[in-house]
Nucleic acid binder design. Structure first.
Lengths: 192, 192
DNA sequence: GACAAAATAAACAAAAAATGTCAGAGCTTC
DNA sequence: GAAGCTCTGACATTTTTTGTTTATTTTGTC
């Protein structure tokens, strides 16, 4: 659910769009489907968004905003390095697993990726920055053992997650792999 | 899965169509979707079926053929009257629950009903006939206590199941109600 | 209640997608 | 290599979707 939008109409559109994409897939969803779901006429939707692509882009943007916030919170948490990392990765991952689990999740992700490459890249970069900052701080405190700089490792983490996402066959499979990866990296960072 | 068809191509089409209907819903499924899924070109599909409606009708027909066969087998089984009835109703019901559970199951059933009323009615009548014959036989053997003729009761059973289907919100809900109904009727028929 | 301003929908032309058909390409079988 | 198949690419037609414009309704203000 999206509530972070100033305009409630826009929120209605975004929610309806997400619903419709999940139900019918991006290709099969018409502006009318979205309008109906948002309880307004089609032209009213055009008053807010130029076209379907603009809606996808906004959805993607919201998605990353949320994810960045969640990961930031997780990284501020307390616990062992390994536990914190696991929490952060879980936070970053949760949303995707939900999307993947929906009937047309895979197609949705594809559409997202192809129509909002820039937003995706920005978002991923932002996430990498969060991890890097956290790693640098933990390193300074002597709580982790870094191979290479924090940026390197942060990028490795986010890119790996991307790989898992791209090759996931379904939601559960994805979650298992993510959990495994978090364990591995957590252990790898541990000071002995 | 459909294998009862002479022509393997037709089976491929029917299976692909069922898949597509369940995935996208009837309205959103195009002949091309069906063709792709069946591994052939769109015109090839038209060689077998006149249009989408014809495919739905054939699917419906197969469905009822299967169901009639299953119910007939169940009614020939051994056990108490109540148990046999429960088995039969379960056999009749199983398929529907699966359909209802699919992403666009409800819309599919709607399309089926509106495009192949005649087939549906025939199928329901055939099922009622099976129950009636069985009831008559059990009655002759003194194993059930009938109020009214076997036809009356058979029709009551099938119509009731139809009611449950029409008002079902999701698959599990439907199965629960069916199970409850089977118990009730089974008990009602019992000789004391 | 009358007036502007904003919000909404009905209606329209343009574009895109889906449909149904057919001539011809490829593949077997004789 | 001809006859009989099945299949596909390409086509005209219909239907759906899109983006916009125009008219109507609603809202708040005086």
């Amino acid at each position: 659910m999206i509530e972070l939008t100033a305009d409630p109409k826009q929120a209605a559109i975004l929610n309806s769009a997400f619903q419709a994409f999940a139900n019918y897939g991006f290709r099969k969803t018409s502006m009318d489907d979205i309008a109906k779901g948002a309880g307004m006429s089609r032209p009213a939707v055009y008053l807010h968004y130029k076209n379907k692509e603009a809606i996808v882009r906004e959805l993607t943007q919201h998605y990353y905003t949320q994810k960045v916030a969640d990961v930031a919170v997780a990284l501020k948490g307390s616990g062992s390095v390994s536990e914190i990392l696991k929490q952060a990765i879980r936070a970053q991952t949760e949303g995707i697993a939900t999307v993947l689990a929906s009937p047309h999740g895979v197609e949705m992700l594809d559409a997202t990726k192809s129509m909002s490459t820039d937003i995706v890249e920005n978002g991923e970069a932002e996430l990498a920055r969060l991890y890097a900052a956290w790693l640098a701080k933990e390193d300074a405190a002597g709580r982790v053992r870094l191979f290479g700089g924090p940026d390197e490792i942060a990028t490795t983490i986010t890119r790996s997650l991307k790989g898992l996402k791209l090759t996931a066959t379904h939601g559960d499979d994805y979650e298992n792999r993510v959990s495994r990866l978090a364990d591995l990296i957590g252990a790898g960072l541990q000071v002995r």
